[in-house]
Nucleic acid binder design. Structure first.
Lengths: 217, 217
DNA sequence: TAGATTGTTAATCGATTAACAATC
DNA sequence: TAGATTGTTAATCGATTAACAATC
C-alpha cells in the first residue's frame, strides 16, 4: 500500500534523505542487518515518528514487529535519491574550488562523473583537474552539443553566472550545482541546488555570536 | 519597541539572513538607498510578510510609509550575523578542498582570517595555501595553545574527524565548519555548521530524478 | 493631508510528534 | 501466542501568510 504517487514531497523531507542514507551505509559497513525506527532515532537524534513518517512518504519499507532491513532500505533510498545511475558533470570555473571538486574521489564512486572542465583563464586552460583537461570557456557550447551533460557545477564569480547559465540551459543541461553567490533564474525544466559556502559560514558566525551573547548573561 | 531579547530565533529565520544580506549588498552597490518589503519581496521571490516578520525578530528597522534604509539595514544584518568582527580560522586537512577555501579571497574580505593549516600528509606539509604554511597535524595542539582560534574548518576523511574534534574543543575552539561526512558530537558551548557537499549533490540528483519522472507522465 | 508602508495580531497552512490499531 | 514495531490517523506545534491599525 504505497502512498499516493502524485503527492508532492516537501524539500524538508528530501533534505533529510541523504542523512538517512549515510547512517544506513554506516550500519551496513558495521554488518548490522536490521534496525528499528526507535534505534535509528537514538543514533540520529531525531524522533522515531519522523523517521517512519519520512520513509512512508515513499513506500512501506518496514515490517511490523521487526523493523527495517538495512540493506533493503539503503537500496531503496539510493533509488529514491537517484543514485542508481550515472551523471555526467562538467565544471564551469576550474579555479581552486572547481579543481577540488574534480579531484574529490567520492563523487566518482557515487556515480557523479566529471567529463569536462572549463575556465576563461589562459593560465589554467590546458592543465588537468582530476583526470580531465581544462578547456577554454569558448569550447563550452560545442562541447555541450557533442556530449550529454547532466549536471554543471558553477563555480565562477557571480557576475559571470548570468551569462553562462542560459548557455547551459539552452544546450540541454538540466541540473546546476551552483556555488556562485547569486540566485539563478532558470526555467521549470531545470533544477538548481545552491551550495553557497559564504552563507554557510555566516550561519556559523551567527551561532558563535549567539553563544557569546549567552555567555555574558 | 524591539522584541523580547530572550526569544529564541528559529534556524529557518537565521538561514534566510545571509540571503537578505546579499540582496541588500547588491542594492547598496547599485546605489539604491531605500527599499520596501514589497519591492524586496519581488526581487527575492519571497512574501513581503515573511521579510517583515523575519526582520522584526531582531528589531524595528523600517519606517512606516517609507520602507527600509538599505545602508542601515545592511549594517544591522551584518551585526546580527556577527560579521562586524574578525574570526581566526584554521584548516584541518589541507587537501584540495581545504586549500581552495584558504585561497578564496572573499572570506578574508568578510573578516574570516586563516591563520593556520594542518595536514598529516608529509607531501603537503611545508607547502603554502593562500598565504599560510601548512603544518604537520602534530603541531595542532601546541598551535591552539599559542593562538586564539575561533573557527576550525574540518575537511578531513570522516574516520579521522572524531579524533580531531575533541582536541579542538578542549583547546578552546568554539566554532567548527564541518565538511567531513560525519555528525560531530560536541558540547553545548561549541557550535557546528555542516557543509556536507555530498548531501547537497544528492539533493540535486533527487530533483533531477523528479524532473524526469514528471516528464514521463 | 493622503498615500504608503511598516509592525504586529490573527488566520492559515504545513510539519512534527504522539498515539494506537494493525500485524509480523 | 506475546512482544515488538510498523504504518497511519489524530493532536500539537511552529512557521508562513493575510490583514489591518498605527504612523511616517
Amino acid at each position: 500500500m504505497s502512498k499516493d504517487e502524485n503527492e508532492k514531497i516537501s524539500l524538508a523531507v528530501v533534505k533529510r534523505l541523504p542523512r538517512y542514507y549515510r547512517y544506513l551505509g554506516d550500519l551496513l559497513e558495521h554488518g548490522i542487518t536490521r534496525i528499528s525506527s526507535g534505534d535509528l532515532s537514538k543514533k540520529m537524534g531525531v524522533t522515531a515518528s519522523q523517521i517512519r513518517q519520512d520513509l512512508n512518504k515513499f513506500g512501506c519499507f518496514g515490517q511490523r514487529g521487526y523493523g527495517y532491513n538495512v540493506e533493503m532500505l539503503y537500496a531503496e533510498i539510493k533509488k529514491i535519491l537517484g543514485l542508481d545511475r550515472e551523471y555526467n558533470m562538467i565544471i564551469i570555473g576550474a579555479g581552486n574550488l572547481g579543481q577540488a571538486l574534480a579531484n574529490y574521489p567520492n563523487f566518482r564512486k557515487r556515480g557523479f562523473k566529471f567529463i569536462g572542465a572549463f575556465d576563461k583563464n589562459p593560465d589554467i586552460v590546458g592543465k588537468t583537474a582530476g583526470d580531465i583537461v581544462i578547456m577554454d570557456i569558448s569550447e563550452l557550447e560545442p562541447f555541450l552539443k557533442e556530449n550529454r551533460v547532466d549536471i554543471a557545477v558553477l563555480s565562477i564569480p557571480k557576475y559571470n553566472a548570468p551569462k553562462i547559465s542560459p548557455i547551459l540551459v539552452e544546450n540541454g543541461v538540466r541540473g546546476i550545482w551552483n556555488f556562485s553567490h547569486i540566485d539563478l533564474n532558470t526555467p521549470d525544466n531545470v533544477v538548481v541546488e545552491n551550495a553557497h559556502l559564504t552563507e554557510s559560514v555566516m550561519t556559523l558566525s551567527y551561532k558563535l555570536s549567539e553563544l557569546e551573547k549567552n555567555n555574558k548573561e
